[in-house]
């Protein structure tokens, strides 16, 4: 079979079928929304079985959106939180990745520091926050540090385990070519680990968001978490819920962004199938 014939065959295999959109997973996502909304609506507006201070009605939350989004300095608060998340994630993921590379290259370093680093991960953000505030104050820098601490471990541990996933045969191939440790790392181990590392990045991004918000809760001069505290003390539950939805939105955007980058970067994972029809050329 020539190359063009193969491409033609692949094109036939993947030609769009009728009503394919019915199988789209997003249809399921869309179906969930009215269900949740109606349960919420039934519990609050219709039966009035949950007090508004615990769960506001959907209408009141909807109505609170323009009030919260239009409030003076709202965009500054959003920007503050986004900076904390992005900065913390970038810092934490970078440190996590390089620590993973470093520790994977030496059994001795692993034995010496891996238990310690894992134990460090067990310290909750809430406990660290007051200490960091005491050290570097209430500003954005402390929140970035907090988010970085919260997310580095996920990237670190997935990088470390992903780098060990290279097949023995592939490692032997590199050895037989007398590839240096560095060449084996860059040309074999890191690409092999990428799908796992991206899993760590997804996980790390969520923990970075949590880290930033929790530390804003503990003490901050700005940001969405700080805004939530203010709404809560004013018993403005509807506005509080608006910000919860904003966090949901941030989480969704972050997830989709990383997912998109992964698809571009780890393109071979999408099509890692053998084609038995090509067995004979």
């Amino acid at each position: 079979m020539t190359r063009t014939e193969v491409i033609a065959q692949i094109a036939i295999d993947s030609s769009p079928k009728k009503k394919r959109w019915l199988k789209s997973p997003y249809l399921l996502t869309a179906a969930l929304l009215p269900i949740i909304l109606s349960i919420w609506w039934l519990a609050t507006t219709v039966t009035n079985s949950v007090p508004a201070i615990l769960l506001p009605t959907p209408e009141s939350v909807w109505a609170a959106f323009p009030r919260v989004l239009g409030a003076n300095g709202f965009s500054t608060q959003v920007l503050t939180t986004l900076t904390e998340i992005a900065g913390g994630f970038a810092l934490g993921a970078t440190i996590g990745f390089f620590l993973g590379v470093l520790l994977s290259s030496s059994r001795r370093l692993r034995a010496a520091y891996l238990p310690f680093l894992s134990a460090l991960e067990a310290i909750p953000t809430v406990i660290l926050a007051p200490i960091i505030i005491a050290w570097i104050g209430f500003g954005v820098e402390g929140k970035i540090l907090q988010a970085a601490i919260a997310c580095f471990y996920a990237v670190f541990i997935t990088t470390l385990s992903g780098l060990g996933l290279a097949e023995p045969n592939a490692v032997n191939l590199m050895k037989s070519l007398r590839a240096s440790k560095w060449q084996t790392m860059v040309k074999l181990r890191i690409p092999t680990a990428l799908p796992v590392i991206f899993g760590g990045l997804q996980l790390g991004a969520t923990t970075a968001i949590i880290g930033a918000i929790v530390s804003e809760f503990i003490g901050a001069t700005g940001g969405l978490g700080y805004l939530m505290l203010r709404y809560r003390s004013g018993f403005d539950t509807a506005a509080y819920w608006v910000i919860i939805f904003l966090f949901l939105l941030i989480g969704l955007v972050v997830y989709l962004t990383i997912w998109y980058i992964e698809r571009r970067f780890v393109f071979w994972r999408r099509s890692e199938v053998t084609r038995p029809d090509l067995e004979k050329q």
Binding site: T2, R3, S271, T274, K280
Partner: peptide
């Protein structure tokens, strides 16, 4: 003809 194809587009042989 397959110089620019990826391994997963090729058969085992």
């Amino acid at each position: 003809d397959f110089r620019d194809s990826y391994p997963w587009q090729l058969s085992g042989g």
